[in-house]
């Protein structure tokens, strides 16, 4: 709306770091703030269990939550622009279906965290590769890609159903079901590097090209007339976004709604210009997942699947925002 308001920018850039520090202080194993700092820096008086607790349990989880929240939200915002459709998120391309199948397959045959992560990542890329491959034969227009995404998702959902069908109802099936609900309960430093690297590179990419994402919201001939090589740019955005989402889903399982709702919240706040929308989505997404994951790991003795929390909070939020959007456009009272 109005060119950058410094206050908004400051709030958006400050909230995630503040929350990040705050969630390190919160957990089922209650800890006093001063103890946290002492143990973090190995000062006198740090208890034996505190340091591993914060450094090995809470810190990697908070990092993963922030990265995944930012990834899903930024990609959601970019994809909504790219497909000129405010109702899509990263799942439109079959990333999640591919990842779900990959993870379920790995849970069935191996069960190691690395295998699950790797297989989910590989199949997520394969799914989107199929979609883009099919789309490429028919001109890579948004419509072709969306239909390709629906078809490939359906295929992988069927394969997932097959795996669930043959899985042992006592051991493998609960593991698959739990994975599909999403969560960061199993996060350890050892499995974090791929996510951190991909998030760093991907988010930097989107911050750099963010103004140009606006051009993707134009009709193809219009963008071409503006001298933009629209197809290479579209494929590049899809490729980088897919790798980011795949890494996120492979690490945390299915976390719905964040990629759909957060861009809407951001758009309501800073407007549709991707120059501000992308950083705002990253900040709000990271903050959202930091808060939700803290609830997921502290509210009850057993983990609350993150996918359930995002749904419980995301659906009412989306309900509200969407009708607000319709009202603005005069399509609802």
């Amino acid at each position: 709306m109005i060119p950058p308001r410094r206050a908004t920018a400051a709030i958006l850039l400050l909230i995630p770091p503040i929350l990040f520090v705050a969630v390190l202080l919160i957990g089922r194993y209650s800890v006093r703030p001063d103890e946290v700092f002492r143990s973090l820096f190995g000062l006198k008086g740090s208890s034996e269990i505190l340091r591993p607790l914060i450094v090995r349990v809470r810190l990697p989880r908070a990092l993963a939550a922030a990265c995944i929240g930012a990834n899903l939200s930024v990609c959601g915002a970019a994809f909504q622009g790219l497909f000129r459709n405010p109702l899509v998120d990263s799942r439109i391309l079959g990333v999640s279906s591919g990842a779900a199948f990959g993870a379920a397959l790995a849970l069935l045959v191996s069960g190691s965290a690395f295998a699950v992560q790797g297989s989910a990542f590989a199949f997520a890329l394969l799914a989107v590769g199929l979609v883009v491959g099919i789309g490429g034969r028919f001109g890579s227009t948004p419509l072709v890609i969306v239909i390709g995404g629906i078809l490939v998702s359906a295929l992988f959902n069927a394969l997932l159903g097959l795996i669930k069908h043959v899985a042992d109802p006592l051991s493998h099936l609960p593991a698959i079901t739990y994975w599909l609900l999403g969560g960061l309960g199993g996060i350890r430093w050892a499995i974090l590097p791929p996510l951190l690297v991909i998030s760093g590179v991907g988010l930097t990419f989107f911050l750099l090209v963010r103004w140009r994402l606006n051009l993707l919201t134009l009709a193809d001939p219009e963008a071409t007339a503006l001298g933009v090589r629209i197809r290479p740019l579209r494929i590049l955005v899809i490729a980088v976004g897919t790798v980011m989402v795949a890494a996120s889903v492979a690490t945390a399982g299915m976390i719905g709604w964040v990629g759909l709702v957060v861009p809407h919240v951001a758009r309501a706040w800073v407007g549709p210009d991707h120059k501000r929308l992308i950083p705002a989505s990253a900040a709000i997404g990271a903050a959202t997942l930091l808060v939700l994951d803290t609830i997921a790991r502290t509210a009850l003795p057993s983990e609350i699947p993150l996918g359930i929390l995002t749904g419980l909070i995301g659906v009412p939020a989306f309900f509200f925002l969407f009708f607000q959007f319709l009202r603005e456009r005069g399509e609802a009272r």
């Binding site: 957990g27 089922r28 194993y29 269990i49 349990v57 051991s171 609960p174 309960g185 003795p301 983990e303």
Partner: peptide, 26 residues
């Protein structure tokens, strides 16, 4: 309920003296 998923922090909080692993699973 049935099997519960928990996190490492909760296990640290319980701090069991013995951990038993069933004969199935990895």
């Amino acid at each position: 309920g049935y099997w519960n998923e928990v996190n490492l922090e909760q296990i640290l909080l319980w701090n069991p003296e013995v951990i038993l692993i069933p004969p199935y699973g990895p």
